[in-house]
């Protein structure tokens, strides 16, 4: 199994991020705003997902000078995105010593069959998933953190909810099965048998399970936390809102106090009347433009 010492360190950093908010940032200035608002980490990328969606073209790893500027500007962990299957972008990010790599469907995939062999890296990886099978395939490849994919840049929470509910339900179903039924489950989920066995025994993933893709308000963040997310990634939701500083602070508060309706109400009130990012109806997004279907 892959749960060795190096794996524990990789998962360990994910443990430290729990209960927190990881915010997408494009520049060092945005990273400073995120840190000041209480983000537990930032994600460096070239463009936020809603801009990638609008502008089209190939989305790649961010410029090194920008990532380095972000690393110099804040003391919290810095993550950066690499394209699916682009192990050279990942090696470059590892050489830069970012704290986590997101092998992300938000960027244009570099390989339409294979993901990166993440076991071979010292830096930990996070990967997106829409269901249990996808999550366990990524963990089998060495991912030390899973996040639901949702639909990045949509400002619509419905896909993140669908994916979190799916993963939690599929895990729960495994826990009531007998050992002789698990190989058939491994076949059904197209997932490694030993990881199916682990989930059946523990009822959870062997790595932290975070949520991403569509969080636009404090209430959205509290919703995915109540559905089982252990921390929240916010992409376009902060810096495409009318007042990023207010939104960032309010989302942090709602994530910490997700179980307390009065505190979540206070968080909602803190944004005043400033507008959230404009959301998209998922059915209005052309099939070929969905980001969540990237990844295999």
């Amino acid at each position: 199994m892959i749960l060795n010492e190096e794996y524990r360190l990789k998962v360990g950093l994910a443990e430290m991020l729990k209960g927190g908010v990881i915010m997408d940032v494009v520049t060092p200035e945005q990273a400073v705003i995120a840190e000041r608002a209480g983000a537990c980490a930032v994600m460096a990328l070239e463009r936020v997902p809603s801009d990638i969606r609008r502008d089209g073209g190939v989305a790649r790893m961010s410029h090194i000078s920008l990532i380095r500027g972000i690393m110099d500007a804040v003391s919290i962990p810095v993550m950066a995105k690499a394209r699916i299957g682009h192990f050279v972008e990942a090696r470059v990010l590892e050489a830069l010593a970012v704290d986590y790599i997101d092998e992300s469907e938000v960027l244009t995939p570099a390989d339409e069959e294979n993901h990166i062999d993440k076991r071979d890296f010292k830096v930990p990886f996070v990967c997106g998933a829409r269901n249990l099978g996808e999550a366990l395939r990524r963990i089998g490849e060495g991912a030390a953190m899973i996040r639901t994919k949702g639909e990045a840049g949509s400002g619509n929470i419905v896909e993140a909810v669908r994916h979190m509910r799916t993963i939690v339900k599929e895990m729960r179903q495994l826990t009531v099965l007998g050992p002789e039924e698990l190989m058939a489950e491994a076949k059904k989920h197209q997932a490694p048998f030993e990881l199916i066995e682990w989930v059946a025994k523990h009822g959870k993933l062997p790595v932290p399970n975070f949520s991403a893709g569509g969080v636009a308000t404090p209430a959205d963040a509290a919703l995915v936390m109540q559905l089982g997310a252990e921390a929240v990634f916010v992409g376009s939701g902060i810096f495409k809102s009318e007042n990023p500083e207010l939104f960032a602070k309010a989302v942090v508060k709602a994530t910490t106090y997700y179980k307390d309706p009065v505190k979540v109400m206070e968080a909602c009130e803190e944004i005043g009347e400033s507008k959230a990012m404009v959301g998209l109806e998922i059915s209005k997004i052309a099939e070929g433009e969905l980001m969540q279907t990237r990844g295999w």
Binding site: E15, L17, G19, G20, G38, C40, I76, K249, V252, T256
Partner: peptide, 14 residues
């Protein structure tokens, strides 16, 4: 606990 001390400090104050 372990985590990000900057995040905890900000929430402690707020």
């Amino acid at each position: 606990p372990g985590g990000e001390s900057t995040t905890m400090l900000k929430l402690l104050h707020r």
